[in-house]
Amino acid sequence: MEEMPRQLIDAARQGSERALARLISHVEDRRPGWKDAMKAMYPHTGRACVIGITGSPGAGKSTLVSEIALRLATSGLTIGIVAVDPSSPFSGGALLGDRVRMRGISAASGVFIRSMATRGVLGGLCQAAKDVVRIMDFARKDVILIETVGVGQDEIEVVGAADHVMLVTFPGGGDGIQAIKAGVMEIADLFVVNKADRGGADETASEIAAMLELSSEGQAGKPPVFTVSALNGDGLTDLTAALRGYINRKKAGPVLEQAHVRREILGILEREVTCLIRERVASNGNMEACIARIMAGTSDPYTAADEIIALFAPASRIKGGMP
């Protein structure tokens, strides 16, 4: 039986894990009423400190997230974790294994972990992840850690929407520097070299510091670089202290950034419009007609796209190409 979102919203606010989990599914699946649910929750959000964690596969993000969450939870903070992993483009399925690395978090710790697949929706991941973060925020989580593999633009945008971004790397292979080149450098405000137990971490940390020296020239402060071992706990006290600083600052009140709001509206619109077009085109037979014309050699995909768009907007806006 499907609960009404209203009941779920009330129960989630009062601390029911099951209601929170169901509410997330409801919104993630875009079931009827999801947008009204988000509208109802929105005014009560903005309180949580959201920390995005990204880095190349194998950097030890999940283990690190788990250790950080445990340390923050023992000091009485409520923690939510969103662990994002890719969906298979072939089957649409996903294998979400972050919990394997988060086994240290017991059922009693009050840490809420949600694994999330990218589901391959155009521009959809970013908004879907933001929605999940917002729902956890509504459910009174003090800190929300959102973990993604920092490879695609979509993933970078997910963590980019967080209050703070931590880039996790590890010694050796030149990989750390490669990962930073991918555009994360600009949005990260905290760098972590994990796996310090393996040696070579200090060299990697100095390389990163040197790069930051170059890129942050003329700016007020440059982001700190921490060397840690999530495995044996070295350096985690300092790192957690830095995060506590962020959390305390956030307590001063929600900060709304114009650029984020703009991006979010566009993100919601893009997904809605894409869904609308796909739905409409699939149901009215226009798509099949277009395909048939292209197969017969009398049209092309560009013309087809123009024709389909013309069904939605005044022709004058579309034709001519340039604004």
């Binding site: 399925g93 294998l95 294994g97 394997v100 086994r103 697949a117």
Partner: peptide, 16 residues
Amino acid sequence: LRDEGFEVIYTGLRQT
């Protein structure tokens, strides 16, 4: 099951 299109969450060994 992933290849069948499900979203599979794996917990790892020795879970209570």
